[in-house]
Design a protein around this nucleic acid. Sequence first.
RNA 1: GGCGGUGUAGCUCAGGUGGUCAGAGCAUACGGUUCAUACCCGUAGCGUCGUAGGUUCGAAUCCUACCACCGCUACCA
Length: 653
Amino acid sequence: MGEKTFYVTTPIYYPSGKLHIGHALTTTMADTLARYKRLRGYDVYFLTGSDEHGQKIQRKAQEANLPPIKYVDQLVASFKGLWQRLNISNNDFIRTTEQRHKQVVQKLLQKIYDQGDIYKSSYEGWYCTPCETFWTERQLEDGNCPDCGRPVELVKEESYFFRMSKYADRLLQYIKDNPEFIQPISRRNEMISFIESGLEDLCISRTTFDWGIPVPMDPKHVVYVWFDALTNYISALGYGTEEDHLFHKYWPSAVHLVGKDIVRFHTVIWPIILMAAGIDPPRQVFGHGWLLVDGGKMSKSKGNVIDPIGLIERYGADAFRYSLLREMPYGADGYYNEEVLVNRLNTDLANDFGNLLSRTTAMIKKFNGGEIIAPTEQEEIDNELINMSKETQEQLDSALNNFEFSRALASIWRFINRANKYIEETAPWTLAKDTNKKARLQTVLYNMAESIRHATIMVSPFMPGVPVRVWEQLGITDVPSAHTWESIAEWGGIPAGTKINRGSPLFPRIDIKEQEGGSQVTETKNNKTDAKHENEINKEQISKEEQISIEEFSRIRLRLAKVLSAEKVANADKLLKLEVKIGDEKRTIVAGIAQHYQPEELIGKKVVVVANLKPAKLRGIVSEGMILAAVDGGSLSLISPERDNVNDGATVR
RNA sequence: GGCGGUGUAGCUCAGGUGGUCAGAGCAUACGGUUCAUACCCGUAGCGUCGUAGGUUCGAAUCCUACCACCGCUACCA
């Protein structure tokens, strides 16, 4: 027991549909913590799984004309496939339909029943007969069934109840005595006020469906949701069985990572179940915020659910994981979409980190014949870089212990940027021109490579695919002593005489091109194309471009507009603010034509505008449309009517 | 309704206990550099710190009111 143990879990996900990036976020957080703790020498156990019972599954399986178990088998396989692609290092995957889980749930239930904390009573709820479903008051829509819209009736059902109220005071005391238990603090406060408002007993069995674990003392009941699901955290450790060494080893060092929507179940119901069974509560529950996407919260009805698989395929697991953890502010909701990912990939991963490796290996190759030489001429400025590694390690540790993933990454990137600046300050390309500076040059090159080694180890829990590729390029694949956390306590882990292998970019930049309203993403071409060549490509593209129908074209409303006034937009070189008249309507349009037209020459001119373009804010000015212009390289010409027989407001087609 | 939170540069956000706290990153502009993935380094601009009052020598930071948005207010996995 003397050794450091760390037990981290994700919720067990419900296989009623595919997983989305929210699930990926929780699981990536858990994986990052697990990998970090392993790196730090902890004995880590990392659990995820699936919660497979319940009426909803039973019904979905029916619709699919499958036995429930076959139905969930498919989805669970897809879960596992996703975690594999995301590079998730879980030690176990628990399914609530497994025998090892069922027996623990039954044992736990029996134990609590035997001591009198479970009693039979009746559950009263709003029941929709056609749908065979109970609803709570809040779930009803205008008093009707939210699924079918038909009226519901108040029905009583025989159920077993868990005496939760009895433990309310003990739980409250526990939460108050252990400020670290619920994170972040805002969630903790919510839970305290929730408990203080009084706890009711919890209904833990149902008779209206049978896809669940039978209640041991009354098999016509099945165990209902939370009692079943939450127990996974100890059933996976073999609690109450003969094979319970994992339980003794890892409980109660558990850290449960959950989304904010299920914090209550993990911080109220779960600890009370454990208390009743005489088990210590978990050490910590962290409730992270949600990933908001375009349109707000992800939901199937909005159709804005983002599938992680596509993102992983396009950008790789490492970049995806990085963007998730980097964008998520501590404890609050974060905004996420593909553009955010690409932006992070380009700026942080490609420009800062990948390019640091690239320029370092390039210089070692060019100035040192590809060999890393022992450093012999350290200067004061080197210490700044070297010391910063240690500081960064401390910041990383403290941030991760507090679930501040974004902050942790920000610290590492300050170090990476320091390394880039170090190169600028020492200017190895200048040293290379002076044969007297040979030793200094080699020292600088060594420090550059070594700083990459440090950064790589720090970054490895977040992006587990990075180290192998960096070790390959630095030529230290066969030097395991240079891969450990302990090795970055010191500066100098790369053996002198190491031969580097300059390779392809660690993270290639991604180009986003706006096309036909949607964004199309392509990888930047590495070789530059000259203008002529580019022109040919353009021609090719025009002929190959996707063709659109006349209906699609007619969706774009082009109108003739007369320019009433024009002025330069302050602090913007390219922008002009125009007031235009389209028939009876006046509009403000901001156009990027200031380098081609003087404001005064535009007044009175008739131009073509896109009239139904979504308004956009440019430099704080709302632009209600767009002016059409022909563009050819650096030249630009507005499109104006050739004759004077048409007035503003006229349709252009 | 009750409890709690948020509102700071174009965007995302830092800013214990009131006095270099008006900041960072991205985006933009300009300059430098050439080792590098059109990259890196530097410089600059922009903000009445939600609004209106108040306390104070001094408030983004404390108090009051108001406006806007959000979370929790239980049995959905």
